[in-house]
Design a protein around this nucleic acid. Structure first.
Lengths: 183, 183
DNA sequence: CAGCGGCGTTCGGCTCATCGAACGCCGATA
DNA sequence: TATCGGCGTTCGATGAGCCGAACGCCGCTG
């Protein structure tokens, strides 16, 4: 997988264009570009500008970033208790990493469990991090410092993870699915 | 939030550069760019090429796409039973949407529940879709057609969602958290 | 103090991205 | 059959992105 960025982009544009059954000429027309520009781009020739790519992304109605990142394949299973365990030194809290952030992706997926006791205080993550918490058992108090909310089974919360925040269990066997998303 | 793409990129580059405590001159040097090029870019002037942005992304060690997408803010809570319910016509299956894909993001977050009976067959999603399933209760048989796996509480599976696939409950009150990720 | 190195901004020249036009090919129609 | 419209590719001209250099500013050192 050692294609250049431009080759990735060329493939993505061609893939999305054909998926939407647009001709090269029609996409160019709608994007306000010359056919020759789009032809060169799809051939992986040259070095297109942001405006050119943006105009294409708008017509194809895909996030800009989707034109520059490729996917992954196959069925992968992690059985209960077999994920990578991330212990916490100062609180009755355990995190299990299910799906780490592969190159080009922007999220980690965890199952977290805790017993009542000291809160798990997390330092700020990198700017733009958002945490999504889906409670699966017990009760949590969680969120940014000063803005914690109490959550029960089936509740969902999301909040910025790039500020100090914490997780605390109110009941034994408290659990949740945690998606950490990096923007 | 009506900044142009270039303004978004300029802000992102400046933010990430200062976060890493690099001077404009040093980032330019490492990226093999002229200082003036980077200065113009950070000022939101001009129309940079893919190569220019790529060189910067490599030095800053961030996914290319992170330079072109902005974040979101605040604590948001959806209580159990109050998300947008997405019923399935042909199977004892219910999906609840917790966090839809905002502009620039690439995932939907759902809680799904089902009773034993007909499988929920999902048509192919857009190319590059990956489905992440964390089982929270009961037992599921899920996956792409011909590759389904059986999963119990705490099990996790991910698989391509851009091929026909299905979900079926083996027990009453079967539930899971489903992250649909678009690449 | 003067000199130095580093900073970010501005400038003018060179290269190439993008333009419109031309081209050859294809399928549909009269 | 010839004509037409659409296709994608190639070509040459124009304008702007990127280059290196110059500039003024700043902090540090002798």
């Amino acid at each position: 997988m050692s294609r250049t960025p431009l080759e990735e982009i060329a493939a993505a544009v061609r893939r999305e264009r054909t998926r939407q059954e647009l001709s090269l000429a029609e996409l160019a027309r709608r994007a306000g570009l010359a056919k020759s520009t789009l032809s060169q781009l799809e051939a992986g020739a040259g070095n297109p500008s942001v405006e050119t790519l943006w105009a294409i992304a708008v017509v194809l109605d895909v996030p800009f970033s989707r034109l520059v990142d490729p996917p992954a394949r196959g069925v992968r299973v992690v059985r209960a208790g077999q994920g990578v365990v991330i212990p916490s030194e100062h609180s009755p809290f355990t995190g299990t990493l299910l799906a780490a952030c592969p190159p080009g992706a922007r999220r980690d997926l965890h199952v977290i469990t805790a017993e009542p006791g000291a809160a798990r205080s997390a330092h700020s993550h990198i700017p733009g991090t958002t945490e999504h918490l889906v409670v699966t058992a017990g009760r949590w108090v969680a969120g940014p410092e000063g803005e914690q909310v109490e959550l029960g089974p089936g509740d969902y919360a999301c909040f910025p993870g790039d500020r100090p925040h914490s997780y605390q269990a109110l009941e034994p066997g408290t659990a949740a699915v945690l998606v950490m998303e990096y923007v």
